[in-house]
Computed example of a mutant assay.
Amino acid sequence: MSESPDARQKLSARIDEKQRAVRAYLARERPRRNRLSNVSIVGSGLAAALTAGPAVGGTGFTHATASLLSLSEDSIVWRVLCLLAVILSVAAALSTNFATSRSVADRVSAAETCSAQLESLAVSLDIGHIDVDEAVKLYQQYAGQVPFVDTAHA
């Protein structure tokens, strides 16, 4: 590749396009990663908390709670708590599996790394600190880390 200003400008434009695509990807996927993580953490924590009362307090806990809520049977208390714990456990397991099976966290991390690398490359290219041939190699290396980021939908 030549060291012409045109080649430098074309590469700079390509880097900018990829950066926009990576930023768009991160804008979509970071909140998704955070939601899945929060559902997993909160769901499993609440499931554990819901089963702690009957587990620690035993029948005394269920009798007291049934009386407090004016329930005719104390078995309703542990049934409701167990049902809620199951629902929360399933939600936590599903969110963990969705995040893991689609490698959401790994992909977000790779995109964040790529974004920082492309930013550094763009600066080096703009100030003339790197020749075009080397910049092209680095661009290919960095962009290759995020094949799941489509520049056509940025």
Rank of each mutant, 00 (worst) to 15 (best):
Gln141Pro: 00
Ala154Gly: 02
Ala66Gly: 07
Leu71Ala: 12
Ser103Thr: 09
Pro5Leu: 15
Leu71Phe: 12
Gly128Lys: 04
Gly128Gln: 05
Val39Pro: 01
Leu81Glu: 14
Gln19Met: 12
Gln145Met: 13
Ser109Thr: 11
Ala7His: 04
Val80Gln: 06
Ile127Met: 07
Cys82His: 05
Ala66Arg: 02
Asn38Trp: 09
His63Thr: 11
Leu81Pro: 01
Arg20Gly: 01
Ala110Gly: 05
Ala13Lys: 10
Ala27Met: 03
Thr65Phe: 12
Thr151Asn: 00
Val77Lys: 01
Gly53Pro: 11
Val104Gly: 02
Ala85Asn: 07
Cys82Phe: 12
Leu94Lys: 01
Trp78Cys: 03
Asp74Met: 09
Ser72Lys: 12
Glu112Asn: 13
Asp16Ser: 13
Thr65Arg: 01
Gly60Cys: 08
His153Leu: 07
Ser70His: 09
Arg35Gln: 06
Gly43Tyr: 05
Ala55Glu: 03
Glu29Tyr: 13
Ala122Lys: 09
Asn97Thr: 07
Ser72Phe: 10
Lys18Trp: 00
Ala93Thr: 11
Asp126Asn: 12
Arg30Leu: 14
Thr113Leu: 08
Gln117Trp: 05
Thr65Gln: 10
Gln140Gly: 12
Asp126Trp: 02
Val77Phe: 05
Gln140Thr: 05
Val149Tyr: 01
Ala66Trp: 03
Gly128Asn: 10
Glu73Val: 00
Arg35His: 09
Ser40Val: 00
Ser37Ile: 04
Leu125Cys: 07
Ala27Asn: 08
Gly144Tyr: 07
Ala143Val: 08
Arg79Met: 13
Ile76Arg: 09
Leu50Asn: 04
Ala55Asn: 08
Asn38Glu: 14
Pro54Asn: 14
Gln140Lys: 10
Ala66Met: 09
Ala47His: 03
Asp106Ile: 00
Ala85Gln: 10
Ile41Lys: 05
Cys114Ile: 00
Pro31Gly: 14
Ala55Thr: 13
Ala55Gly: 06
Leu94Val: 14
Ala13Arg: 05
Ser109Asp: 15
Ser72Gln: 13
Arg14Gln: 14
Thr96Asn: 08
Glu3Asn: 14
Trp78Asp: 07
Arg28Val: 07
Arg20Ala: 06
Arg8Thr: 08
Gln145Leu: 11
Arg30Trp: 10
Ser124Arg: 14
Tyr142Ala: 03
Ala122Cys: 00
Leu36Phe: 12
Thr62Asp: 11
Arg79Pro: 00
Ala93Gln: 04
Asp133Leu: 08
Gln140Leu: 14
Lys18Glu: 01
Ser75Lys: 11
Arg28Ser: 15
Pro147Cys: 15
Gln140Met: 04
Val42Lys: 00
Glu134Ile: 05
Ser4Ile: 08
Asn38Asp: 15
Thr59Asn: 06
Ser44Phe: 04
Val90Leu: 15
Ala110Gln: 11
Ala99Pro: 03
Thr113Gln: 14
Ser95Ala: 15
Ala64Asp: 09
Gly128Trp: 06
Asp150Tyr: 01
Asp131Pro: 04
